[in-house]
Simulated scan of single mutants.
Amino acid sequence: GLVFQGTAGSEFNAYDAATGDKLWSFAAQTGVVAPPVTYTVDGEQYVAVLAGWGGAYALSVDGALIADKAPVRNVSRLLVFKLGGKAQLPPAPELAELPLDPPPSKASADVIALGQAKYGRYCAVCHAPGAVGSTVLPDLRRAGSLESASAWNAVVEGGMLKDNGMASFAGSLSKDEIEAIRAYVIHRANEDKAIEGTKKVARR
């Protein structure tokens, strides 16, 4: 028999159920985290899987762990396979990435430490540890609102992006704490910009 499994590394694989040997692999161009299904139509068997990079792992994993291998883009599509199938995917779309160009980090160590603590509690679950986001939600190190305390506050406290899924944290964070989070993200962005050419990120 066969066992099919998708991977976060953009592969959809088939294994020998008895030995575990990999027998076949398909480059899906995106993470595959959903379980596949199989069915028959007029006596012909198909295997189908919903492909797309998302879910809890894609949101919360440190983006650096992904980038160390290759960026995983989200390309949502239904993939269906059959023996002898010859269809091919179109070329993978470009993965657009904003430049890492933060404002200077000027906050005190105490403010940055407060921001790190609050970021870890309220932000990391979606925007990833260390502010190194995956490709599912915005990488805050590259956010344009880092340049302006009022713009940052309009998003975090004012709920300016609530229709896009970014809820207001007005009931959970004070203005000083929101500004401390901005200071921490600026600090992290400057750390990583300093070593950007090495293809690594600071582990903070």
Rank of each mutant, 00 (worst) to 15 (best):
V185C: 02
N164M: 13
L98Y: 05
V61G: 02
A117P: 12
S76E: 13
E179D: 15
P90R: 03
K106M: 06
K193Q: 05
E157N: 10
T7I: 04
A149S: 15
A183C: 05
W152Y: 06
Y39Q: 11
Q5Y: 11
D101T: 09
M160F: 00
A48M: 10
A70L: 05
L98C: 06
L161G: 05
A124P: 00
L89G: 08
E177D: 05
A48P: 04
V201Q: 04
S148N: 09
Y46A: 05
A64T: 12
L89A: 03
Y46Q: 06
K69N: 09
D176S: 14
P104F: 11
L83P: 09
T19H: 01
V41T: 09
S60K: 08
S145A: 10
Y57A: 11
C123T: 06
N190P: 03
V111N: 07
E11Y: 11
E179H: 14
K22F: 10
L140G: 02
K82M: 05
T135D: 08
Q88E: 09
T198H: 10
A8I: 03
R142L: 06
G43M: 10
V47E: 07
E196D: 12
V3C: 10
V125H: 15
N13G: 09
L100S: 06
E191H: 14
D163M: 12
V156W: 02
G63P: 05
A70M: 08
V156T: 04
L89W: 09
L65W: 15
A27C: 04
A28N: 02
K106G: 02
A28V: 03
T198I: 05
L98N: 11
K175L: 14
D42V: 10
A96N: 08
V155K: 14
F81Q: 03
K162M: 11
V125D: 13
Y15C: 01
K200T: 03
D163W: 13
L78Q: 12
Q45G: 12
S148Y: 13
K86Y: 00
V185K: 06
G115W: 02
D101F: 00
G43R: 10
K22G: 08
E191M: 11
A170N: 12
Q45D: 11
V80D: 02
D16W: 14
G115M: 01
E179Y: 14
I178G: 03
A18N: 09
E94D: 11
T30R: 07
R73C: 08
R77W: 00
P36D: 11
D42L: 11
I186Q: 01
V136M: 02
T198V: 04
P90M: 01
I178A: 03
P93Y: 15
L78P: 06
K86A: 14
A151R: 10
E147T: 08
E177K: 01
V32H: 03
V136Y: 04
G63R: 01
D16Y: 15
K86I: 07
V185W: 06
T135V: 01
A180P: 06
V3I: 15
G85M: 04
V72G: 04
T135F: 00
C123D: 10
E157T: 12
C123M: 06
P104K: 07
E177R: 00
P91G: 05
V33Q: 07
S76W: 15
L100R: 03
L78M: 12
S172A: 15
Q5G: 13
N164E: 11
